[in-house]
């Protein structure tokens, strides 16, 4: 019997629109980042004619290593905090009755769908020197008069976790929902303690979801610039801030492209490694 919509022509007809669009507006531009890094800057913030290594040489700027290191450090710590919160919460959520799950999911998705700038702004108000949290902590005597909650790495970290937490929470929850909780009972009957059950039974069970979530948080944090710009001080800048500064304030698109190119290549390598690992484990599971 001939199946519906299975022909080669149909495949091309259905695939071409999105494939073409993404090739023109995603794949080609990503390649153009790498090309722009080898062009000279022109006075209007665009790209000059001919080729130049100036932007690539500028990557050796002595201020960059500390910036890269801070970006990586903040992103890794934010990812670990997100996982540490998402794993127990996902576990708890998946064991709740269906109806309760729906309500709680709404409470997770709603802040997630709220305008990103507004979420950062909410934190700025919360941590403001005249804001509610500062007042509360000062009245309790925890915070001294001249301590600022804003404009430090703690504030940047808190807001990074805040805006990215749902990226970890939702995949972990989705994986935990498919997890067979009888396995935990079996492990207990066999004498495993609570921590052992969590580490050796639950964690491998939701590992794929946790890994996907962690990767989303990590890549999201690595490319952040709004959060450090709004709640961080000058000592808390991340690489994204420098990219935006080069592209818009300094009007030097090639240098911005060179920095973006490094970030892009690093992230593509991480993503490729993860895809390979997943294919490998899928093949092993198939055997």
């Amino acid at each position: 019997m001939k199946h519906v919509f299975r022909g080669r022509t149909t495949e091309w007809l259905l695939t071409t629109p999105s494939l073409l669009w993404l090739a023109i507006f995603f794949a080609l531009p990503a390649g153009l980042i790498l090309m722009a890094a080898f062009r000279p800057a022109d006075l209007h913030g665009g790209l000059g004619d001919g080729w130049s290594l100036a932007a690539v040489h500028a990557l050796a700027d002595p201020s960059y290593p500390a910036l890269w290191f801070r970006t990586l450090w903040l992103s890794l710590v934010a990812t670990l905090i997100c996982l540490a919160l998402a794993l127990p919460a996902g576990y708890h959520l998946a064991r709740l009755p269906r109806r309760r799950q729906g309500v709680i999911l709404l409470l997770i998705v709603l802040p997630f769908l709220t305008n990103f700038l507004i979420r950062v702004f909410a934190w700025k108000t919360l941590l403001h020197p005249d804001g509610p949290l500062t007042r509360l902590l000062q009245n309790c005597g925890i915070l001294s008069e001249d301590t600022l909650l804003l404009y430090n790495s703690g504030a940047v970290l808190a807001v990074l976790v805040y805006v990215h937490l749902p990226f970890a929470l939702l995949p972990v929850y989705a994986a935990a929902e498919r997890f067979d909780f009888c396995l935990l009972d079996a492990a207990r009957d066999l004498g495993a303690g609570a921590w052992k059950r969590f580490w050796s039974v639950f964690l491998p069970g939701v590992g794929a979801g946790a890994g996907a979530g962690a990767l989303l948080v990590l890549t999201g944090c690595l490319g952040q610039y709004v959060v450090p710009q709004l709640v961080g001080g000058t000592d808390n800048e991340m690489i994204g801030n420098r990219i935006v500064q080069r592209a818009f304030s300094d009007r030097n698109l090639p240098e911005a492209a060179a920095l973006s190119g490094v970030l892009l290549i690093a992230l593509l390598l991480v993503l490729m490694a993860q895809a390979r690992k997943r294919r490998h484990s899928a093949r092993e599971a198939g055997l």
């Binding site: 980042i33 973006s260 892009l264």
Partner: peptide
């Protein structure tokens, strides 16, 4: 990250 898509 969105930043890279914007730059691209």
């Amino acid at each position: 990250p969105e930043l890279l898509m914007g730059m691209a």
